[in-house]
Every structure is written in C-alpha cells, then in structure tokens.
Amino acid sequence: MAAAAAAGAGPEMVRGQVFDVGPRYTNLSYIGEGAYGMVCSAYDNVNKVRVAIKKISPFEHQTYCQRTLREIKILLRFRHENIIGINDIIRAPTIEQMKDVYIVQDLMETDLYKLLKTQHLSNDHICYFLYQILRGLKYIHSANVLHRDLKPSNLLLNTTCDLKICDFGLARVADPDHDHTGFLTEYVATRWYRAPEIMLNSKGYTKSIDIWSVGCILAEMLSNRPIFPGKHYLDQLNHILGILGSPSQEDLNCIINLKARNYLLSLPHKNKVPWNRLFPNADSKALDLLDKMLTFNPHKRIEVEQALAHPYLEQYYDPSDEPIAEAPFKFDMELDDLPKEKLKELIFEETARFQPGYRS
C-alpha cells in the first residue's frame, strides 16, 4: 500500500510507478496490472468513496492506442447498470505532455475469474450472474457493438453480487458484411471463450460470437473449470467437437473457408456428449439454455433477447427493466489503419471533457 500523499506533496508512487492523480484522489492501494497499465484503488475526496484507477501508458504502440481509444469512446457513450462506466479521466493539459491516461471507475471487490478459483456457486448465484451478463449484453448488442472478449476476468463483482462487464478494448461495431482481413492475426481474445466460426472463417462476425462466450462462462460457473481449455488453435476446435459432436452437413455448409471445411470433413465422426453427463448436478433449465448458447452453427445460436426470456431466468426476466441503447454506435473511421500519432490526438480530444474549465 502506498503511503497517503500529504496535501501538495506531488504524485504518489505505487510499486515504483508514478500515479499522478492528486489532489482529488489519494490513499492509493495496488490492485493489479494488465498488459499496459496498473490498477489501484484510491480515495475520492470529492465523492467520499474509494474508486478504481487504471493507469494506461499506450502511446508507444499502435495496438494499445487503438484499444484505449475504443474503450474510452464506447464506455463514455454507454450507460447501463451492468456495464462499468467511466467516472473521470485524468491526463496532462497538453498533448505533448500526455504520456499516461488515468481512467477512474467504480471500485468492484472482485471478478468472476477470482471468485470461481475459490468458491463453488449455488444455482441461485449462477442464475443471477447469468441474468446480469445477458442484461448488459442486450444493451451492448442493441448499440450494434460486439464485445468480443467476454470471459470471467472481464466480469466485475461486488459483495452485493452486482455484476458489471468491463474491458471493451477489443470491441467492434457489428459488421457481418465487412471482410476484416487479418482478423485472426489481430484477434487476441482469450482462445477458450472463442466461437468456432472465428477459427473457421475470417469473413465478418456477428453478435452470436458473444453468446458463445457467455455459454462458455455459464459452463464454467457450473463446474469451476473452463469447458474448452484448448492449448492452441486446432486443439481448441477438437475440444469443442469432442463435446458438441461432429457438425451436420448443414452446419458445414455455413463454413465459407474450404480449407477449414475440408479439415472438419477429414475428422472421424464424434457423438455429442449429453450435458447432464458433463454437469450431473446442474439445473435442467440451465443445461437447456447452455445447449442453445453453445450451438456450433452461429445462425442457430440463441440471441440475447431470447436467452433473457428463457425459463431458467424467469424469476428475473423483465423486458421493461432491460434497457437498450438510445442509438446504434458508430465509429467515424476504422481505427485499425491509423498511425499511433493520430490515435493519440483522438484520445486527447475524447478525454477533453474531463479537463478543468472544459467548454463543449
């Protein structure tokens, strides 16, 4: 834990890192770190609560700039109880001085990944967590956004079992017609939660990839272990087919990539493993919904509104309290091709509203 900075004593240090967030945020305490930044909790002297502050230093890398800009653009436009918001952003007053960006968010005690390492969940908890994931996802999908990296560590939890989806750095506007060349190379989302079509096709992607990830998360809540822990690309596919069985001819016809289709045709026939054999203690309604989410063919996979209306979630289902976005989200430009200098300018502009004396 960093010592509390005395008023006016300059930035606090946390594990050798400068955290320049005073005077409003003090009493910093280390939480963890990701690929390009550290997260601390801090005391907000204005709202009198502890908050989470993520320090991001992305400006050396085009990919990190892209992810940072995506996350900020999306989260500043989203407003939903099951999606983490941005409360404040701290950065230098000029673009030349801006080396880091500090993002202030609600402090959540833990995440689903940490929880599943230590606790076996009751059916009631599984049901409530799944409902909140789908409630947040309904809003995301209504904005025409794909999260693309749903996994237990991106689901934040607090002691009252509130759940918030975080990390929109890989999110995209849904565009089933656009052929994202190089899709697989830039697709760094965790393999275990990846839909089979991501490994088999490169053309376009749809909201059904997020539903697949939610199915993987439900299976993990039922058993405290990942359902498809593939060691590499082909191993991942083999794990999936080992449980779902061989795809039907109709399902194979959806695979545009001939090499991928021929690979699947070359494999020995596998039978589907019954879900109640894998999860003998699970609620039968939970397994019915799991089956509809972990469907090989993305066109037959359940959609988020149908999933919310499934009998497993009937005690929570309330369409009048499951809000959607006001308007579909649009990125003005494809960020993939922009140089990091341009992305830095866009991050600077996007964060201006939090600067003292800002006038829109």
Rank of each mutant, 00 (worst) to 15 (best):
I53A: 00
F228C: 00
Y131L: 06
N281T: 15
D336H: 02
E349A: 00
A189G: 05
P196N: 07
K344M: 15
F168G: 01
L289V: 03
P152I: 01
D251P: 02
K203G: 12
F78E: 11
Y30F: 14
Q62A: 10
R191V: 09
H120S: 04
S266G: 15
K272H: 02
E350D: 15
N47Y: 15
D321R: 10
V304T: 03
D124K: 07
Q66A: 06
R79A: 07
P356A: 00
M221W: 06
S213V: 04
Q355G: 08
I255L: 12
K138V: 12
L289I: 07
S246P: 00
Y193A: 12
T351I: 06
N281L: 08
T351L: 02
P339E: 13
P152T: 13
L234I: 13
L170Q: 14
T68H: 00
P356N: 05
I211Y: 13
L200T: 11
D288C: 01
T295F: 02
N158R: 12
Y358R: 11
R301I: 15
C127M: 13
E341D: 15
Y312A: 05
I211H: 13
N27D: 09
G85P: 06
M38T: 04
L237V: 00
A9P: 05
P319W: 09
I31C: 05
H180C: 09
W212R: 15
H125G: 10
V14I: 13
D88A: 07
C65Q: 03
A2D: 08
P11N: 11
E109Q: 11
K300V: 07
T160E: 13
R194P: 08
K342E: 13
E81C: 10
W212E: 14
K272A: 05
D167K: 01
Y312S: 04
F129T: 04
E250D: 13
E305S: 01
Y30R: 10
R67A: 03
V14P: 13
N257H: 07
M221V: 05
I217M: 08
A352C: 06
N123I: 14
H269L: 15
V214R: 05
Y43K: 02
V101E: 15
Q105A: 12
V51H: 02
L170T: 04
I211S: 13
D106M: 00
K151M: 14
F78M: 06
M98H: 11
K164F: 08
F228P: 00
L155M: 14
A282P: 07
C254A: 08
Y187P: 01
P356I: 02
T63N: 04
I83Q: 02
T110I: 10
P274Y: 05
T295K: 11
I302P: 09
A195Q: 07
A309R: 06
L163V: 03
R277C: 07
I133H: 02
E334S: 02
Y102K: 07
P247W: 07
H178L: 15
T160F: 11
A174D: 05
Y43M: 07
I256R: 12
Q119R: 07
E303A: 06
K342S: 02
